[in-house]
Design a protein around this nucleic acid. Structure first.
Length: 488
DNA sequence: CTGGGGACGGGGCCC
DNA sequence: CGGGCCCCGTCCCCA
């Protein structure tokens, strides 16, 4: 046997053992479907498994079972096949899901390949766009969008996939070995196929649900990606918006060795069914967050963003519309596109100081703060009747504040904050200051004015209730950029 | 199981 | 161009 082929032979043997269920000591259940595998192989190939299995390695001699519901079985199959063969079967339909899962499992090799795959898609889309603008309408209609392109080429791990060589019958991207020499590229027939694939995939729903069910800090760190189901025009753009768990731009998927992998309570998502000590798992962050571009950066660096002439206005002035390069959405104003891009970058620059939940827009944060933390609505939360300072009081429940009328209050028998004081706070009173502990956000507390003088220094400008802190997600440390006074 | 309401995200558009 | 308001759709919780 040739020494140089030894490693591939070994991998082949392991794969064979997996297929025959020989020495498999780990069951991975993905949405009910069971995959058998070897812990040592999983350990060696995935940062996620490494972390989890290293915890259990001391005590666990018996079978380990893991349950995932954040991606689909088909997706995991692609990844597991890669682990045991070095070959990654990517298509325009599954690349988003695979990258999402790889991100979850911390498999940087897979992410890199997905990145390259997506980059190729975008590059080719860009070329198609250029061609589109350089050709007449007639040419485009006869040659354009429906043509499917099949590319196949090899390149080094760090280089971009070339697009110049035509392959014959490639329906999937196969990656083999460290040099990715077997990488073949399949061009989706339409440039937004990636999004469509993501939309189709149920795995996204799982992610979505887990996020929605998660606590606030969880939601705050995982961009709240909600693939929309609606089928109307506006829904298309929303539905095709795969911003959440997987980055969209080249910059975002960049996983350089110095990438900021953030481990922490806020970012973790633990598979439900791990048989190992759940507390151990919960004590550590299992999902990394890679550095992402902000919408601003993306917008600034974006090449001549697809200004699309959307027909002619009544004054014979061309109506420009701006198309999002990542989905089918078009907007009339560039500024709106910038705002829209944020939903692809997953950027949430406005964290709520009270609960840590983050928002894409200041107005959303304000609205959230008013309704959740300021008891902004003058209605009884129980009986929905209008309450005044005479007929009701403010109730504090964790970081939530709401109003109850005196009758409901008597029934509930909870502590209250006098409405007068509440309203004074809103006007001129001492600020409502949220004081996150340096390391443990969960212990963060609210401090209400003088009544609860704390060890935390109050903000000097007492006119503010809501401390607005715009955060640059690209920084590890939350950096206070801006403190604005008052949100009334 | 279902409908109503709250919370939230996102688009359009005015200022 | 940014801020802000309005509106609508979706998800989730709860009765």
């Amino acid at each position: 046997m040739d020494i140089s082929s030894y490693h591939s032979h070994l991998l082949q043997q392991l794969n064979e053992q997996r297929r025959q269920d020989l020495f498999c000591d780990c069951n991975i259940i993905v949405e009910g479907k069971i995959f058998k595998a070897h812990r040592n192989v999983l350990f060696a190939s995935s940062g996620y498994f490494k972390m989890l299995l290293s915890q259990s390695s001391r005590e666990a001699v018996q079978l380990t079972t893991a349950t995932f519901e954040v991606f689909a079985p088909d997706t995991f199959k692609v990844i597991l096949d890669f682990v045991y063969s070095g070959k990654l079967s990517l298509t325009g339909q599954n690349v988003i899901e695979v990258m999402s899962a790889a991100s979850y499992l911390q498999m940087t090799d897979v992410i890199s390949v997905c990145k390259a795959f997506i980059k190729s898609s975008l590059d080719i889309s860009e070329k198609e766009k250029d061609r589109f603008f350089s050709l007449s309408d007639k040419e485009v209609s006869s040659n354009g969008a429906d043509r499917s392109c099949l590319y196949g080429a090899g390149w080094g791990a760090e280089s971009s996939p070339p697009h110049s060589h035509l392959a014959s019958d490639v329906g999937a991207c196969m990656v083999g070995g460290s040099s990715w020499n077997d990488y073949n590229y399949y061009q989706p027939t339409q440039k937004n196929n990636l999004q469509q694939g993501a939309k189709r995939d149920q795995g996204q729903d799982c992610i979505k649900k887990r996020v929605r069910h998660g606590d606030l800090s969880e939601a705050s760190d995982i961009p709240n990606y909600k693939p929309r189901k609606s089928g109307d025009g506006s829904g298309d753009a929303r539905a095709s918006d795969p911003k959440k768990h997987f980055p969209q731009s080249e910059e975002q998927v960049q996983l350089d060795p110095d990438a900021e992998y953030q481990y922490g309570l806020g970012t973790e998502r633990i598979p439900r069914g791990w048989t190992m000590n759940q507390q151990q798992l919960e004590s550590r962050g299992a999902v990394f967050k890679c550095k992402t571009s902000t919408a601003d950066e993306l917008y600034a660096t974006m090449p001549t963003i697809l200004g699309v002439v959307g027909g002619w206005s009544e004054d014979d002035v061309p109506r420009m519309r701006f198309k999002c390069p990542f989905c089918t959405h078009m907007v009339k104003r560039k500024a709106d596109l910038k705002r829209h891009l944020r939903c692809h970058t997953g950027e949430r620059p406005y964290p709520c100081e009270a609960c840590g939940k983050r928002f894409t827009r200041l107005e959303h944060l304000r609205s959230h703060f008013r309704t959740i933390h300021q008891a902004g609505k003058p209605v009884c939360r129980k009986c929905k009747r209008h309450v005044t300072e005479l007929t009701g009081q403010v109730v504090q429940e964790g970081t939530r504040r709401y109003r109850l009328c005196n009758e409901c209050l008597a029934e509930a028998g909870v502590d209250t904050i006098p409405i007068e004081e509440e309203e004074e706070e809103e006007d001129d009173g001492p600020p409502l200051v949220f004081s996150p502990e340096p390391d443990e956000e969960k212990d963060s507390r609210w401090h209400f004015g003088d009544e609860h003088k704390s060890d935390v220094e109050m903000v000097e400008d007492g006119s503010s209730d809501l401390i607005i802190q715009q955060v640059d997600d690209s920084e590890d440390d939350i950096e206070e950029k801006e403190i604005k006074p008052t949100v009334s």
